[in-house]
């Protein structure tokens, strides 16, 4: 049975006189890959930022499993089970791949000043326990060879992959991906598409120490410009244009929607 995971209700957001979002509502259910598309500046990332708590909409509410999360700090929302990646990669460039992902285990770890300072005993045990989970994520995303490399030295495609791994380490119920394939080669895109589908479905007992890899995430909300990818991966699509939602539906519905065609290609008969 499917439930509603993330619900955005009549959200409006403006910066001074600029209206980023006007009365946007989306409802994402569990077991669904939900794509948000639209031309540049349509408000896709702003909508994602409203969900993850970076922006606080002036009007409207955001719910997670029926609970209101509008106005909560991003770190609180992350703890409630929403993890995200960033459009222009938000990694900790001075840390290794391993430590970037370990850093996301932060919310599940209980070390404090004293246990950390002593390290030996309790703290070390906890490090090892979480290292096991992180190693499963590294294994899943095929990053063993870059485990100890500083991410600032990694090529773009791999950085995106590390960022996905870091989001998974939060064991999210809902995964927000902001252009996970932007700027990638076809092969890299295929890899990421495969990872997204595998994460979504869950891998069962192949990865016993990582609940998210074992059971999969409930919903994925994805912004993506590559229409081929969107049409293949998404169960439902919402289209934004100038801060308004102009269409929502299955890929087939969206492809034949006259408003969407107009937004992407312009009015028929008008030059330019």
């Amino acid at each position: 049975m499917s439930h509603t995971t993330v619900q955005v209700q009549n959200v409006s957001l403006s910066f001074g006189g600029v209206k980023a979002l006007t009365d946007v509502s989306i409802t994402v259910s569990s077991d669904e890959i939900f794509a948000i598309i639209g031309p540049n500046g349509a408000g896709k990332t702003a909508l994602l930022n409203c969900i993850s708590g970076f922006y606080r909409p002036q009007v409207g509410e955001v719910y997670l499993y029926g609970k209101k999360i509008t106005g909560l700090r991003p770190d609180r929302i992350a703890r409630l089970g929403i993890a995200r990646t960033f459009q222009n990669i938000g990694l900790y460039t001075g840390l290794s791949t391993l430590d970037n992902i370990m850093a996301a285990r932060h919310v599940f770890m209980k070390q404090n000043f004293l246990t950390s300072a002593l390290y030996f005993g309790w703290s070390r045990k906890e490090e090892i326990a979480h290292r096991k989970t992180v190693e499963e994520i590294i294994d899943f995303l095929e990053m063993q060879s870059i485990r100890k490399q500083i991410v600032g030295t990694l090529p773009y495609g791999l950085r995106k992959r590390v960022e996905l791994g870091r989001a998974l380490a939060l064991e999210p119920k809902v995964l927000l991906l902001d252009e996970p394939m932007a700027g990638m080669t076809l092969e890299e895109k295929e890899d990421i598409a495969r990872f997204i589908l595998d994460v979504f479905e869950g891998q069962g007992d192949t990865y016993p120490d990582s609940p998210v890899l074992r059971d999969g995430v409930r919903s994925i909300v994805m912004i993506e410009h590559d229409m081929g990818v969107v049409m293949d991966l998404a169960d439902r699509i919402a289209v934004l244009n100038f801060g308004r939602k102009i269409a929502e539906g299955t890929p087939a519905q969206i492809q034949s929607d006259p408003d969407v065609i107009k937004a992407y290609l312009g009015e028929p008969g008008q030059p330019g």
């Binding site: 991003p74 938000g90 900790y92 404090n112 000043f113 950390s116």
Partner: peptide, 29 residues
Amino acid sequence: KNILRTRIGRAFVAIRDNDLAAEAMGVNL
């Protein structure tokens, strides 16, 4: 060294390298 190689230390570096991302990853700035 022990503080910096465990949870608290990684949160510190997270804030140094990317405070927005750190917040999105559950670090209370």
